[in-house]
Computed example of a mutant assay.
Amino acid sequence: METTVHEIAEGVYRLSTLLPDVAGAGFTMNQFLLDAEEPLLFHCGPRRLFPLVSAAVAKVRPVEDLRWLAFGHVESDECGAMNLWLAAAPHAQVAHGALGCMVSLDDLADRPPRPLADGEVLDIGGHRLRHVPTPHVPHGWEAQLLHDETTGTLLCGDLLTQIGEAPPLVHDADLVSAAFAAEDVFHATGLTAQTAPTIRGLADLAPRTLALMHGPSATGDCAATLRALAEGYAARLDATAATV
């Protein structure tokens, strides 16, 4: 395996590792490095990928320069290597929603995390990241996303997950069909009455780039993509309710 590095927006780097044996067709594991005065890594990755991903980070900035670590929710592929990063970057701190800090990260992180209020902006010098809580979307009570208002990049976490090897960046691609194909394999989304409204709220941010944890990054009409995803989940919820 190798971890590749591509700049998908100004100062936003996709670090991607293909896991070839997952789900038959393979599965991408992506982290995102925001190069700034206070560099931030979104997704820590699992522990076993730390050597590969840290070497990829070092192609852009020395690992010890990292100031912030963030991720969508508490799950091993998102934060399994969290404490390895904290050890490698002595000034780094985890930034997460206050709920996630209270429920898990105050105990799990080797250094106290920085709790973020709903809608709070973290200015890292060159990128302004707004904390967007998304409880149970796609899963996890403490789920959150970050929207880089400087570049219009939505750090999507597990939203729009797809299976297979993915190019670094696509334009106006059909992400939604691939996402529902993956959903039919993994059944990973917590389907509730708030799933579609939460995703519509993300569309209202009008992002210019979608940075997927599992799949390609994408540009084009990102709001339309998110609204189509929301409508797909709304239809699935209606279909489930009709069978009860």
Rank of each mutant, 00 (worst) to 15 (best):
L160Q: 04
A109M: 05
N30K: 04
V22Q: 13
C222Y: 10
A88N: 11
M82H: 11
H127M: 02
V185I: 15
S16V: 03
P20K: 13
E75Q: 15
A224S: 13
L122A: 02
L159M: 09
R227V: 07
D77R: 10
L116N: 08
D35I: 00
F71N: 05
P115Q: 14
G26K: 08
D158E: 11
L18N: 06
I124K: 02
G190Q: 04
G72I: 08
V103K: 07
L226Q: 05
D238F: 10
H73S: 13
V22R: 14
G125V: 01
R208Y: 08
M29F: 03
P20E: 15
L34F: 06
D106M: 02
G97S: 11
A242W: 12
M29W: 03
S104K: 09
H91T: 11
A179S: 10
A178R: 14
R61A: 08
L52C: 00
H43K: 06
G201P: 11
A25C: 08
A56M: 04
R48G: 09
A58R: 15
V60Q: 14
D21H: 14
G140T: 05
I199E: 05
D221W: 06
A235T: 15
H43Q: 12
C79F: 13
A188I: 00
P216M: 12
L86R: 01
E149V: 01
T192N: 13
A242M: 13
H91G: 11
L229G: 04
C44L: 06
R200E: 14
L205P: 14
D35S: 01
T134I: 07
D238E: 15
I124Q: 04
M1K: 05
M82C: 15
C156G: 09
A58Y: 11
V137N: 01
H136R: 14
G201L: 10
C44G: 07
D123P: 04
A143Q: 12
L159D: 06
R128T: 04
A173N: 10
E149C: 00
L226M: 03
A143H: 08
C222Q: 11
G26C: 10
G100T: 08
R130I: 00
H91S: 11
L40R: 01
L229F: 08
D106N: 12
P51T: 07
A193H: 12
M102P: 01
H136F: 13
L49M: 01
V5R: 03
T189C: 01
V22C: 11
P168H: 02
L154C: 04
G45S: 03
L108Q: 15
L122H: 05
R114K: 13
E120I: 03
